[in-house]
Lab assay of single mutants.
Amino acid sequence: SIVTKIISIVQERQNMDDGAPVKTRDIADAAGLSIYQVRLYLEQLHDVGVLEKVNAGKGVPGLWRLL
């Protein structure tokens, strides 16, 4: 499923980069989806406690990390 793919992308990127959070844009590119589509999935995963959003604010790139 797309959700499983997104989780594995975040996991893979974090492992490659010493646990650093992953940008929404990088996840979207790797999943082959638009940034808006991916954001909806990321928000859902956040709501159920799978991911945390590391930063927030208007015009700030979203950074995500697995919990």
Rank of each mutant, 00 (worst) to 15 (best):
M16F: 08
R25S: 12
L42M: 03
E52N: 03
T4Y: 13
V50R: 05
D26W: 06
D26C: 03
V38G: 02
G19A: 04
S34L: 04
L45H: 01
G19Q: 06
R13C: 08
T24G: 04
D26I: 06
L42A: 01
Q37E: 13
R65N: 05
M16A: 12
Q37T: 13
A28L: 02
G62M: 12
V50D: 06
N55L: 06
N15F: 11
S8G: 10
P21N: 04
G59S: 08
Y36P: 13
G49C: 03
K53H: 05
L66N: 02
Y36E: 14
A20C: 07
V60K: 15
E43D: 09
N15I: 12
K5H: 09
D17N: 15
I6L: 10
D26F: 07
I6A: 01
T4R: 14
L40I: 14
L42Q: 00
R13V: 04
I7K: 04
T24S: 04
Q44G: 07
G32S: 06
L45K: 02
V3S: 07
L51F: 04
P61G: 14
Q44D: 07
P21E: 02
A30Y: 04
I7A: 03
G62E: 15
L66C: 05
K5Q: 09
L67A: 15
V22L: 05
Q14N: 06
G32P: 01
D47L: 14
D26R: 02
V38F: 01
Y36D: 13
S8L: 11
D18H: 14
D17Y: 15
A31K: 01
Y36H: 13
V10A: 01
Q37G: 03
R25A: 13
R39C: 11
P61Q: 14
G62N: 15
M16S: 10
I7V: 08
R39I: 14
V3W: 15
S1D: 13
V48T: 10
K5P: 00
G49L: 03
Q44R: 13
E12G: 06
D18M: 10
V22W: 04
D29R: 13
D17S: 15
R13D: 01
L45T: 01
G32T: 03
V54Q: 02
V60S: 14
D17K: 14
G19V: 03
I7E: 01
S8R: 13
I27L: 03
R65E: 03
V10F: 15
M16C: 08
V3L: 14
L63D: 06
I35P: 05
Q14Y: 07
P21F: 08
L51Y: 02
A56L: 10
I35E: 11
N55C: 12
W64Q: 00
G19T: 04
A31R: 01
D17T: 15
I9E: 01
S8T: 10
K23V: 04
P21Y: 10
V3Y: 15
G59N: 10
V10T: 02
A56M: 09
G49Y: 02
K58D: 15
P21S: 07
A28T: 00
G19S: 06
L51E: 02
V50E: 01
Q44L: 14
Q14P: 01
G57A: 07
H46Y: 11
L67I: 15
E43M: 08
A20Q: 11
I2Y: 07
Q44F: 15
G19L: 05
M16N: 10
G19F: 06
T24I: 04
P61W: 12
R65Q: 07
L33V: 06
V38Y: 00
D47C: 13
L40F: 13
Q37F: 10
I6C: 02
N55R: 08
I27K: 00
H46W: 12
M16G: 08
G19M: 06
N55G: 10
A56E: 10
A30D: 09
L33W: 03
G62L: 15
V3G: 04
V3N: 04
G57K: 10
V3M: 14
V60M: 14
G19C: 08
R65W: 11
I2S: 03
G62W: 10
D29V: 12
I35C: 07
I6H: 00
D29M: 13
D29Q: 12
S34V: 08
I6G: 00
Y36G: 12
I35N: 15
T24E: 15
K23R: 13
I9D: 00
I9T: 03
V3H: 11
E43K: 09
L51H: 00
T4L: 13
D18L: 10
I27F: 01
Q11L: 11
S34W: 03
E43R: 06
L63I: 05
D29F: 09
I7Q: 03
S1Q: 10
L33P: 00
I2N: 04
S1A: 12
R39Y: 10
D18Q: 12
N15Y: 10
L45R: 00
V50F: 05
L66P: 03
A31G: 02
D47V: 12
R39S: 14
E52G: 07
S1M: 11
A28F: 02
R39P: 00
Q44P: 02
K5S: 05
I27W: 01
W64V: 01
N55H: 10
V22M: 07
Q44E: 09
H46S: 13
G57I: 06
E52I: 08
I35S: 05
G57Y: 06
N55I: 07
V60H: 14
G62H: 15
K5N: 08
Q37H: 09
R65H: 05
L51A: 01
A30H: 06
A30G: 07
N15P: 02
E12T: 11
H46D: 03
K58W: 03
S1L: 10
T4V: 10
G32D: 15
E52V: 08
D47N: 13
L33C: 04
L45G: 07
L33M: 13
Q14I: 04
K58N: 14
